[in-house]
Computed example of a mutant assay.
Amino acid sequence: MFSSPLVIELPSSMQMTDEQFFEFCQVNRDLRIERNQFGQISIMPPTVSETGNREFNILGQLWFWSEKDGTGICFSSSAGFTLSTGAERSPDAAWIKLERWNNLSPAQKQGFAPICPDFVIELRSPSDNLPTLKNKMAEYMREPGIQLGLLIDRQQRQVYLYRPGQPEECLDHPDTVSCEPVLTGFVLHMSKVW
């Protein structure tokens, strides 16, 4: 087992198409795989148990709010999305407005949907490099459709808020994080995340 992402670079003559990358991920479904816009493939280590519990708590809060709100749908870290740059990303939690999701074809929904979520959360695990995660959040913020992103750093008890066209905002030791106005009424309670 490795403790940080394994990055695989393929020669330009061996770059995978989107369909081939999707098939590669399906054949290796027990691995957490992403691909950046340059074709580099990252294989992430499994989430440690404690981080998995915190991620589940975040997903539970988002799902509960989403079910009551009814204007969009949630996704776990198992869902992949193809960004406009060609990168395939799997945020730890995501939410997409129904109107945007419903504009995709059934075939697009069956693969790594060609859409960037409206809202993404990345939870830093002990093996994650903070600058790398910040770059990933900046990548999301350049995408059409994204409205808000949270990067949660449990080690430092900080939450970084990302909004398109705005500088990152850092909250130190927050008890709650409001996701207004993008997710009306959604407040992430941090007690079980910390």
Score class of each variant (00 low, 15 high):
R124Y: 03
L83W: 02
A107H: 11
D128C: 04
Q155V: 04
A107D: 13
N102C: 00
L133N: 09
L123C: 02
D92H: 15
T85F: 03
R100C: 01
A93C: 07
G86S: 07
K97L: 15
K134Y: 05
P117W: 05
S125P: 08
G149N: 07
I152N: 03
D153A: 04
G145Y: 05
A94G: 02
D92C: 13
N129F: 03
F119W: 10
N129G: 00
G86H: 11
R154L: 12
G111V: 09
I146F: 06
P144N: 07
R100D: 06
Q110L: 07
I121Y: 03
W101L: 01
V159C: 14
D153L: 00
S84N: 13
C116T: 07
L98H: 05
K97I: 06
D128N: 10
P131G: 13
Q155W: 07
A93I: 04
E139W: 06
E122S: 07
P114T: 09
D92E: 15
D153E: 11
E122C: 06
E99F: 07
P126H: 09
F112H: 15
I152L: 12
V120R: 04
R142P: 00
E88A: 06
K109P: 01
L83D: 04
D128L: 02
L123Y: 04
M141F: 11
S90C: 14
A107R: 13
T85P: 01
S105W: 12
L104Y: 07
N135R: 15
L123S: 02
E88D: 04
G145R: 13
I96S: 04
A113L: 09
M141N: 08
N103S: 10
R157I: 08
M141I: 12
A113D: 05
R142W: 08
P114E: 09
E88W: 07
F119I: 06
E99K: 12
N102H: 08
I96V: 14
L150I: 12
T85D: 13
W95I: 08
L150K: 09
L98T: 08
D118G: 01
K136M: 14
L150W: 13
I121Q: 01
K134R: 15
L104Q: 04
R100F: 05
S90L: 10
A107L: 13
P114L: 09
G149D: 08
P91V: 02
E122P: 12
L104H: 03
D153I: 08
L83K: 05
Q147M: 14
R154E: 07
E88T: 13
S90R: 14
Y140F: 15
E99P: 03
S84V: 12
G149T: 09
V120C: 04
I115Q: 03
P117R: 05
C116R: 04
N129R: 10
Q155M: 08
A107S: 12
G86D: 05
P91N: 03
K109D: 04
F119K: 05
P131C: 12
P91D: 00
L130C: 09
P91M: 03
N135G: 14
I121M: 10
K97M: 10
A93E: 00
I115H: 06
K97G: 01
E139C: 07
Q110K: 11
I121K: 02
F112M: 10
N135K: 15
N129W: 02
G145T: 06
A138C: 14
P91W: 04
